[in-house]
């Protein structure tokens, strides 16, 4: 049966107004709402950036305390701290460039482009970080090996370390790439075809 789409769309438009009239009026804006604002979760990217900044800030004193108290090389502590500082600088720059506080104010196409760029940047930086991360964990493992008193403990440290690092990198990269792909798919929909 042939359906008259124009007629149906006009019907939809009038029904749409009926629907809007039927929406329940919500009294959500009150003192309680404003008080609970601080407890609300932020947008995923906002939270990611905040967590990353926090991670960098915590890393520096932690690694220095470890180096002083557990007889680890001070050079290692300095290198890790420098790395955390560089990451902190880049994260702050990205956050500023993205304009986190106004991110959603732009039009949908611009916002999608910005988010795709952000994810792509971090996917790239994660790949670039594989070598320093491997070097860092190799050092940590060497120190742990030095403290281990039997072969089983050494094997356990090696296997669990390799598996957890590989899984963490693969999952993060996969998530970033998936998000970039979805943003690209969306950006393609904006094109005039």
């Amino acid at each position: 049966m042939e359906i008259n789409i124009e007629k149906e769309i006009q019907a939809l438009k009038s029904e749409y107004n009926v629907f809007k009239e039927g929406l329940e009026k919500q009294e959500t804006l009150n003192e309680k709402f404003f008080k609970s604002l601080r407890k609300r979760p932020a947008m995923a990217i906002n939270k990611e950036i905040r967590d990353r900044i926090l991670g960098d800030v915590v890393t520096i004193p932690t690694i220095i305390v470890i180096c002083i108290h557990i007889d680890w090389s001070l050079l290692f502590g300095i290198l890790v701290s420098l790395w955390a500082l560089v990451d902190l600088g880049i994260t702050l720059w990205v956050s500023r460039k993205l304009g986190m506080n106004h991110l959603l104010d732009d039009d949908v196409r611009t916002v999608t482009g910005k988010i795709a760029g952000y994810r792509k940047f971090y996917a790239g930086s994660l790949i670039a970080a594989i070598v320093p991360v491997t070097a860092m964990f190799t050092y940590i493992f060497m120190r742990l090996y030095a403290q281990a008193d039997n072969a089983t403990a050494v094997r356990l440290i090696t296997i669990s370390g390799i598996i957890s690092i590989t899984v963490a990198i693969v999952i993060t990269l996969w998530q970033y790439k998936k998000h970039v792909r979805r943003c690209r798919e969306l950006l393609e929909q904006f094109e005039e075809k």
């Binding site: 789409i5 124009e6 149906e8 769309i9 039009d107 949908v108 904006f190 005039e192």
Partner: peptide, 25 residues
């Protein structure tokens, strides 16, 4: 709102109506 040209909006609406018609068939 979407960040596209007016021409693109009208083009999209025509295409969407065609798509909806195809779906209904």
């Amino acid at each position: 709102i979407l960040g596209i040209s007016v021409k693109n909006v009208s083009f999209k609406l025509v295409r969407i109506k065609e798509q909806l018609k195809k779906m209904s068939n």
